[in-house]
C-alpha cells in the first residue's frame, strides 16, 4: 500500500436526537474534511433522519479532563434511528422472534 496508508482523519460525532435534548456523543468516523464528516455522520448515525442536528469535530481537537474520566464516550443515540423489527408480520405463537 502506498500513500493511502495516510488515513482520513478521525472525527467524533454528536447528535441532537430531537429538540430540547443535548447533543450526545454517538461514535466516530473517518472523513477527509468537515463536509464529508457531516455527510457521513448523517448517513451512518442517523440513517437520514431529517431534522436532527449533528456536530462533528476532529478527535485530535477534543481536550479531556482526566484519563480516568467516566464520560460515556460512545453513548448510543436515540432509538429512533433504528429500523423497527415489529414491521414483520410474524404470528404470535412463533417463539423467540
Amino acid at each position: 500500500m502506498t500513500a493511502d496508508k495516510q488515513d482520513w482523519p478521525l472525527y467524533e460525532v454528536f447528535v441532537r436526537g430531537k429538540r430540547g435534548l443535548n447533543h450526545v456523543h454517538v461514535g466516530s468516523l473517518h472523513a477527509a474534511d468537515d463536509r464529508m464528516a457531516l455527510t457521513h455522520a448523517r448517513d451512518l448515525y442517523t440513517r437520514r433522519n431529517e431534522g436532527v442536528s449533528i456536530w462533528v469535530v476532529r478527535s485530535e481537537h477534543i481536550a479531556a479532563s482526566t484519563r480516568d474520566e467516566k464520560d460515556p464516550f460512545f453513548e448510543p443515540s436515540a432509538d429512533k434511528v433504528y429500523r423497527h423489527p415489529t414491521f414483520y408480520d410474524i404470528p404470535e405463537d412463533v417463539p423467540h422472534i
Binding site: 432509538d79 429512533k80 434511528v81 429500523r83 414491521f87
Partner: peptide
C-alpha cells in the same frame, strides 16, 4: 426495550 412509537424506518 425501547421500541417506542417514535422509532423510524430507513428511507
Amino acid at each position: 426495550e425501547g421500541h417506542d412509537d417514535d422509532t423510524r424506518w430507513a428511507y
